[in-house]
Nucleic acid binder design. Structure first.
Lengths: 191, 191
DNA sequence: GTCTATAGCAAGATAGAC
DNA sequence: GTCTATCTTGCTATAGAC
């Protein structure tokens, strides 16, 4: 809070005039970066129809968007890591924003020429959100100049994801696809 | 440190007679649970020759081993999350233990009847270590009774991994396998 | 609305008696 | 070796003047 207040050019106490708590402030920060991500991704999503290119554009836009905050990524992650924290991406408090982010990946899929089975189509946005969290996790630890390694990871992993998804419809891979969907579906007995 | 000292039945100050810092204590804790994991996994590794069963046994042993410490998983993860912390699994300080854990997965592979290409054989232990960290991450957040969901994740994901690895040799999947290996290999230009 | 000052607390670590 | 007592720090959050 001290660092943020200083960066904002206001006194520490003043931050609490606008935000009820540290958690509220950070939640708002996350909302803001998500809106920035939406804006940064709008271009490719309007132009591209190829799934792979759409995903690549969205992932690059993601890294571009959060890059200015790489310095704070460590502290933010420390807060988010606590399973009991509302800032944890899997918490109920994070559910709305998580849903919005997942919706973006749904747009990536829906706006593409990708042909998919019903089940995979339903599950894919959530899977892509998880994938994107993995990339962010990598980015947090990335100390390479300009986070070049993260960008390379994005390029290569998007390629891999696109291949996997495309192949998933092939008959020999159907059982594997079904197994993967069962893994993520978790039907009925939630616990 | 206070909680640990209390659980150990000693005074807070006394903990610092045995451990130079919190980090040293936790590192030792990690070493200890790893040794316990080795012991718990020894049985299956001695008996089974099927890759899938070996991996399943090792993963179940892992969850069994860490289960008593589920209460502390949150705090421990908070420490480990900081990229600057020596407790971070990707830190240099964690490198020796990470290597030992990876070696265990090498044993899983080597002791099995699995036929693999040279490159995948070399990369697989590290990939399995990463996979196992993902399972641990899930376990940290798992609040289901007895962490049933984690055990189910292990069963299903091991099945999936085994299928994937088995299929990786098939000619139509070779390019995908090569792409996956490139993803993880990161040759030459480390950054 | 913004400031300064400070309350309150949790946690890591140390001092020094026994 | 083990204890109690305490130091120090770092942080969230609040009080109250302006």
């Amino acid at each position: 809070m001290r660092a943020i207040a200083e960066a904002a050019g206001v006194a520490l106490g003043n931050a609490y005039y606008y935000f009820g708590s540290k958690e509220h402030l950070i939640q708002e920060f996350y909302r803001r970066t998500h809106r920035e991500h939406l804006a940064a991704a709008a271009g490719v999503l309007a132009e591209e129809v190829e799934f792979k290119e759409r995903l690549l554009g969205v992932m690059r836009a993601k890294v571009d968007t959060i890059m200015p905050y790489h310095r704070f990524a460590g502290v933010l992650f420390k807060s988010a890591a606590d399973p009991a924290s509302p800032l944890n991406p899997f918490s109920v408090e994070s559910a709305p924003l998580r849903a919005e982010a997942t919706a973006l990946f749904a747009v990536v899929v829906e706006g593409s020429r990708l042909r998919l089975g019903r089940e995979l189509r339903a599950a894919l946005p959530g899977l892509l959100w998880t994938y994107h969290m993995g990339v962010v996790l990598f980015w947090i630890h990335d100390v390479s100049p300009g986070c070049r390694r993260t960008y390379r990871l994005v390029e290569r992993s998007v390629d891999l994801v696109a291949r996997l998804v495309a192949l998933s419809r092939l008959p020999p891979l159907r059982p594997l696809t079904r197994a993967a969907l069962r893994l993520v579906d978790d039907p009925a007995g939630e616990d």
